[in-house]
């Protein structure tokens, strides 16, 4: 769908992964992540197998390793804590390059980083092959509560409007000699945020009036659910990845 250029992560291309309906991709991504999370941390080989699966899907979707690695730096702030675990962990110690590290802590850090990274990769692959608009359609078809998909739809529509408003307000401020280069000069910026909030609030009311004028009664008409939903075949194709992941997870659980 031509919902525009507003996607940061979407990689426009035509691949078997791009062509799959969004709902099966979302389901596959969630199932894959669940399988990864359920894997015992000691089964190091299993995570290698998951990485191979991700690489295979990425190759199919024509997403390069470079793009995937660069984008996955997003998880760094969330896993920073994991790097401290080997030093803080209790119990048995092991000597690594002259450092006394906790075995339990090492496993804990590995657990967080490996599972986190695989989850981020799976999400990135979904985002790279599905436009934001289609993601919402997919969630809607998966019977995600309408209130959530509606909020997401409004965000998608009005984010650009808000950004445009903020930009114009900033230009107007700068044109009147505002030059906020230091934290203590942020007063104008803060007031701008307040004004932006008020404007968004008032706009919400006007949008609602316009919706009511067109017969809105509190529920969105089911316009999109009916068209081109996934076939059984497409579900089966998309299921291969999470099924393989689940097999790996089950094997790992039995072996350890």
């Amino acid at each position: 769908m031509g919902a525009g250029h507003a996607h940061v992560l979407y990689r426009s291309a035509d691949s078997p992964v791009h062509r799959l309906p969004p709902e099966v991709k979302i389901a596959a991504m969630v199932a894959f992540t669940l399988a990864v999370v359920a894997t015992p941390r000691e089964a190091l080989w299993a995570f290698g197998a998951y990485a191979l699966l991700v690489a295979a899907v990425a190759a199919l979707a024509r997403v390069t390793a470079r793009w995937l690695l660069l984008r996955s730096t997003i998880e760094l702030p969330f896993v920073l804590f994991a790097f401290a675990l080997p030093f803080l962990g209790a119990g048995e110690r092991v000597d690594v390059a002259g450092w006394q590290l906790s075995v339990d802590g090492l496993y804990g850090a590995w657990n967080i980083i490996a599972k986190g990274t695989l989850g981020v990769w799976a999400s990135l692959l979904l985002a790279a092959t599905t436009s934001t608009r289609d993601l919402i359609v997919g969630l809607d078809r998966l019977r995600c509560p309408q209130i959530l998909t509606q909020i997401a739809t409004f965000m998608l529509r009005y984010l650009d409007v808000l950004v445009g408003e903020a930009r114009r307000m900033r230009l107007a401020r700068i044109s009147r000699g505002d030059d906020p280069r230091f934290v203590w000069q942020l007063r104008g910026f803060a007031a701008g945020i307040g004004a932006l909030f008020l404007r968004a609030f008032e706009r919400g009311e006007r949008v609602y009036l316009a919706m009511v004028s067109r017969g809105y009664t509190g529920r969105m008409p089911p316009v999109w659910q009916g068209t081109a939903t996934a076939t059984t075949g497409q579900w089966l194709i998309a299921a291969t990845v999470p099924v393989m992941a689940a097999t790996v997870a089950a094997t790992a659980a039995v072996l350890t």
């Binding site: 409004f154 009005y158 706009r203 006007r206 009036l209 316009a210």
Partner: peptide
């Protein structure tokens, strides 16, 4: 049918 002044108020869906 009412057409409101600001089309951004009227057009709220992604396409």
């Amino acid at each position: 049918g009412i057409v409101f002044q600001d089309p951004d108020d009227q057009l709220f869906l992604p396409t």
